[in-house]
Amino acid sequence: MKKLKLLTDIEESYTELRYKTSWPTKGQLIKSSIIVLIASIIIALVVLVMDICVNGLMHFIYGLK
């Protein structure tokens, strides 16, 4: 009985992915990927600047070389 339920679930999942899901076009996928890439670079740069500032502050406070 459980095997039948599992097979039914797999079949329903396949049907939903195949016929009911709206997949992005190649152009939409490329645009979204570029936006994610740019956002990741900006966030990395912000973290880098914050790290440099905190590092400089710690060197100033503790007189590290």
Rank of each mutant, 00 (worst) to 15 (best):
M1T: 09
K2V: 02
K2M: 06
K2C: 03
K3P: 00
K3G: 05
K3V: 05
L4M: 11
K5H: 05
L7D: 14
D9R: 10
D9C: 08
I10R: 14
E11I: 12
E11T: 15
E11L: 15
E11Q: 14
S13V: 03
L17M: 14
L17C: 14
R18S: 12
Y19V: 04
T21N: 05
T21D: 02
S22K: 10
S22A: 08
W23K: 03
W23D: 01
W23P: 00
K26R: 14
K26Q: 14
G27M: 08
Q28H: 06
I30A: 12
I30T: 11
K31P: 01
K31T: 13
K31V: 13
S32Q: 11
S32C: 03
I34T: 08
I34P: 00
V36R: 06
V36N: 08
L37S: 02
I38F: 05
A39K: 11
I43N: 06
A44H: 02
L45R: 00
V47R: 10
M50V: 07
D51H: 05
D51T: 10
C53P: 04
C53M: 15
N55G: 12
G56K: 10
L57A: 06
M58W: 07
H59N: 15
F60V: 00
I61Q: 03
I61F: 04
G63F: 12
G63D: 12
K65W: 08
